[in-house]
Structures are given as structure tokens and as C-alpha cells.
Simulated scan of single mutants.
Amino acid sequence: MFLESTDFVWEKIDENLERALIGFDDSLMQTIVRFKKGGIGYLHHHFHSQCAFIAKGSFEVQIENEKKILSAGDSFFVPSELVHGVVCLEDGILVESFSPARKDFLS
């Protein structure tokens, strides 16, 4: 299926984050998350594998006890159950993929 950016349905997560689902089935989900500077994806873990591509901005990314600053064009992968989170250092966009799909994002 095709989805143009003008058709994205944005869900406000908090004052600094909003997310749109851009494609999914039971085995895979892709989202796009817009962050304002200072926005936080708080440390968490889940059974899904996750891959994220930084489309805009820069982020301090933490996976377990390791932190790294990544910028547009960089990516990171989080295996199942590892603790991870991000802090947005300048307005940014993450494109994230999850396997299997995040059913909790559909409610």
C-alpha cells in the first residue's frame, strides 16, 4: 500500500513528541517520531526487536549502559529486551521499525 506524508495521522505523545504509524502487519511495524529539542524517549525495554534511523537532528542514544550521540543519517539497533532510550539534542525525526508489530501502539 502507498501512504503519502500528507496522510500521516499524528498521535501526540507529550509536549515534545508525536508519532505516526506508517505501515504495519503482525510481523513488522514502521513509525515516524517527531521530537522537539529536549524531547525524551525514556529508558524502557520490550520484547520487540527495534531498528531506528535518524532522519533529522541529533540524539543522545542509550542502549543498556552505553551512550552515543548520533545524527541525521545514523541508525541504531536494539535487540529484544535491552533497556534503551533517547534524548533529542536538536529538533529531530526518528524512523523506527519493530518486529513483531507493537500492538500497544494500536490501542
Rank of each mutant, 00 (worst) to 15 (best):
E11V: 01
T31R: 00
G39S: 07
Y42W: 15
K36W: 07
I22K: 05
E15F: 04
G23S: 11
E11L: 00
I32L: 04
D26C: 11
Y42P: 10
H44D: 08
G41L: 15
E11D: 10
S27G: 10
Y42E: 12
H45F: 12
A20I: 10
R19S: 02
L43H: 08
D25Q: 07
E11M: 04
R19V: 08
A20V: 13
A20T: 02
F47N: 13
L28P: 15
F24D: 07
V33K: 01
T31M: 06
E18P: 10
E18M: 13
F24Q: 15
G39W: 11
I32F: 06
H45I: 08
D14Y: 06
L17H: 06
I40Q: 02
M29V: 06
I22P: 11
K12I: 00
L28D: 03
F35S: 00
Y42A: 10
R19W: 09
L21H: 06
K36H: 05
G23M: 14
H46S: 02
H46N: 10
G41R: 11
M29F: 12
K36A: 01
F24H: 15
G38N: 12
I22N: 09
I13L: 14
Q30D: 05
I13H: 06
E11H: 05
A20S: 03
L21K: 01
M29S: 01
G38K: 02
Y42S: 12
D26R: 07
F24W: 15
G39Y: 11
T31G: 04
I40K: 07
K36D: 08
Y42T: 12
T31E: 14
D25K: 03
Y42H: 12
D25M: 11
L28R: 13
A20G: 08
Q30P: 15
K36G: 01
F35Q: 01
F47E: 15
G23W: 15
L28K: 14
F24M: 13
I32Q: 12
L21D: 08
E15C: 07
E18F: 05
Q30C: 10
D26Y: 09
G23Q: 05
M29A: 06
G38E: 01
H44A: 03
G39R: 04
G41N: 15
I13G: 01
T31Y: 07
R34F: 06
T31I: 13
I40E: 03
S27I: 04
R19A: 11
L17Y: 12
L43E: 07
G39N: 06
K12H: 00
R34C: 02
T31N: 14
S27P: 07
D25G: 04
D14C: 00
